[in-house]
Amino acid sequence: MVLAEWAVELKEVRKTYRTGPIDVPALRGVSLQIAAGEFAAVAGPSGSGKTTLLNIIGGLDRADAGEVWVAGQNLQLLSSGELAHLRLQRIGFVFQTYNLLPVLSALENAEFTLLLQGVPAHKRREKVEKLFSEVGLAGLEDRRPAELSGGQQQRVAVARAMVTEPALILADEPTANLDSATAIALLDVMEHLNRVTGTTFIFSTHDPQVMERAHRFIRLRDGQITSDETRDRQAAGVAAKGDAV
């Protein structure tokens, strides 16, 4: 029986990639529970399975074995269309390389997921402008990505992920392309949003200063969890989201 209070629960999840004749195990029996409102970091060296883990939690990839529960749903049982719907409605993504649409302005990029949800234009604008002022992007709404710094672009990406008010945000090495000061500023923004909205954040990293900011710190090596620490700051920093999973 899986308890619904977990934002994410993984049970004995396995994933193996086949590269030509060679099988490359990416996850080897990972079990994990992440509560609603957590601000969790997944760390580990390259090839440890961080990205695979986030992709499986985000429904972008399927586990070969085990159970993956997100937002109260067993992802293994969902169709591609249902997974896309789940991602759109309940999960936000922040990518290492921002992945903004270069032909859209900052505001248009941030509202894109709302557009996919069918939210009317005035509500989209209202939500994005509110979020932009929270993440320090006020006044930059009309700029194209090429006209923004890396840190600003990543804030737009965070705003895009947050704007649909998802239960869970997955960020794959969100600070990897940012300098230290910008990375810290971005973490401030993410932590602020986590605290204010209660949205669950899971991000992968191998940046020590990012790891320090996490309230929960999960270390992966060779596709297995080698350590899982919860830090004191969690109690002060996390406000559980009322309707979170």
């Binding site: 985000g58 972008l60 896309a84 759109l88 993504f93 992945n99 649409l101 894109f112």
Partner: peptide, 16 residues
């Protein structure tokens, strides 16, 4: 390719 993959990751359906 990368951008279209990102859009699908965000929840854009194949038909869209």
């Amino acid at each position: 390719t990368r951008e279209l993959g990102m859009l699908m990751a965000l929840g854009m359906r194949p038909v869209q």
